[in-house]
C-alpha cells in the first residue's frame, strides 16, 4: 500500500521545551488515521510540520513522498486540505463569498459551494455574514472550505470540537463518504468516541511521544480482560471471564431465558489511554 504520510524520528523543540520526541509513523492511502492525545501532547505541532507551517528540529517528514518543507508548490497545495486552530474567515463577508474566494484560488467550479454547504448543513445560511455566526457554524464553514477542492489528504485538527452532537454526526458522515471516495484523513482529537467511529488506526501521543499505535478494535481487544457482562431479567449484572469455565453457567441462563443482554467488557480508547499514560484526555 502507498504511504501518503511518512514520519521518521521527528522531533520539535521550542526553546527548552520538547514538543515532539522521536516520533515515527506512516499513514497509508485511503486510511483515516487518528492522532490522539490531551491538549499540549504535540498533535497540532505535528499537523503544522506536516503541512509545512512549522519546521521540525530534527527527523524527516514526507507527504506524498515529498519533504514537507517543499510542499509549498501550488500543485501540492491542491492535494491537501488543512483545518487547524489558526484557520480564519473573512468576517465582513458572507459564507458564500468566503467560499467563492477559495473556489477561485483552488480553481474549483463555483457549483461546488452548494455541495460543501450541504455537507456541513449550512445551505440556508450561505448569505449570512461570517461575523454573525456562532462558534459551531464558524467551524462548519471552515470544514466546508477544507472540503471545497476535494483534497487527496485532509488534515483535521479537532474538527468537531465546537459542534453539537447532530452536526458532529453530519460531519462524521461526510468524512466517511470522503474517505470511501479515497481521501486519506489525518485527524487529531481528544474525543475518543470520534476516533473509534472514524479511524482505521490510532496513535496515542503523550508528552510528544507516541505511546501506542494500532487499530482501535485490536487495542480494545489487547487491553480487554476477557470478561463478558451478563444482564439478567431479575436485575442482576454478572461479570464472567469469557473462557470455557463459565460456558455451562451462561448456557444455563440462556436455556432459562434469563438473559436481557450479554456483551464483552472491552475498555474504551479513553480507558486505554489513561491506563498507559496515567493522564486524562482533556
Amino acid at each position: 500500500m502507498e504511504n501518503v504520510i511518512r514520519v521518521e524520528a521527528l522531533a520539535k523543540v521550542f526553546g527548552n521545551q520538547t514538543a515532539l520526541e522521536n516520533v515515527d509513523f506512516q499513514v497509508e492511502k485511503g486510511e483515516t488515521f487518528g492522532f490522539l492525545g490531551p491538549s499540549g501532547a504535540g498533535k497540532t505541532t505535528t499537523i503544522k510540520i506536516l503541512t509545512g507551517q512549522l519546521m521540525q528540529t530534527s527527523g524527516e517528514a514526507f507527504v506524498f513522498n515529498i519533504p514537507t518543507s517543499e510542499l509549498k508548490k501550488g500543485m501540492h497545495r491542491k492535494r491537501v486540505g488543512v483545518l487547524t486552530d489558526n484557520s480564519g474567515l473573512y468576517e465582513r463577508l458572507s459564507i458564500h463569498d468566503n467560499l467563492k474566494l477559495f473556489c477561485d484560488l483552488y480553481e474549483v467550479p463555483r457549483s461546488r459551494i452548494e455541495e460543501v454547504l450541504d455537507m456541513v448543513n449550512l445551505t440556508n445560511e450561505k448569505k449570512k455574514a461570517v461575523s454573525k455566526l456562532s462558534k459551531g457554524m464558524l467551524q462548519r464553514v471552515l470544514l466546508a472550505r477544507t472540503f471545497l477542492h476535494e483534497p487527496d489528504l485532509l488534515f483535521l485538527d479537532e474538527p468537531t470540537s465546537a459542534l453539537d452532537p447532530t452536526n458532529s454526526k453530519q460531519i462524521h458522515d461526510s468524512l466517511r463518504r470522503m474517505n470511501e471516495k479515497g481521501t486519506t484523513i489525518f485527524l487529531t482529537t481528544h474525543d475518543m468516541t470520534e476516533a473509534e467511529t472514524l479511524c482505521n488506526r490510532v496513535a496515542f501521543l503523550n508528552k510528544g511521544k507516541i505511546q501506542l499505535m494500532d487499530e482501535p478494535k485490536k487495542l480494545r481487544r489487547q487491553y480487554s480482560d476477557n470478561t463478558v457482562i451478563i444482564e439478567l431479567k431479575d436485575g442482576r449484572e454478572l461479570k464472567r471471564t469469557s473462557g470455557p469455565e463459565h460456558a455451562q453457567e451462561i448456557y444455563q441462563y440462556m436455556m432459562d431465558d434469563q438473559i436481557v443482554s450479554i456483551h464483552s467488557d472491552e475498555p474504551t480508547l479513553g480507558d486505554i489511554f489513561v491506563d498507559i499514560t496515567g493522564r486524562e484526555l482533556v
Binding site: 480564519g88 484560488l105 480553481e107 472550505r145
Partner: peptide, 14 residues
C-alpha cells in the same frame, strides 16, 4: 490578526 493570511498561504496561490 484574523488568521486569514495563513489560509491564503496554504492555498495554491503563490
Amino acid at each position: 490578526e484574523k488568521n486569514t493570511l495563513r489560509g491564503l498561504m496554504l492555498s495554491p496561490a503563490s
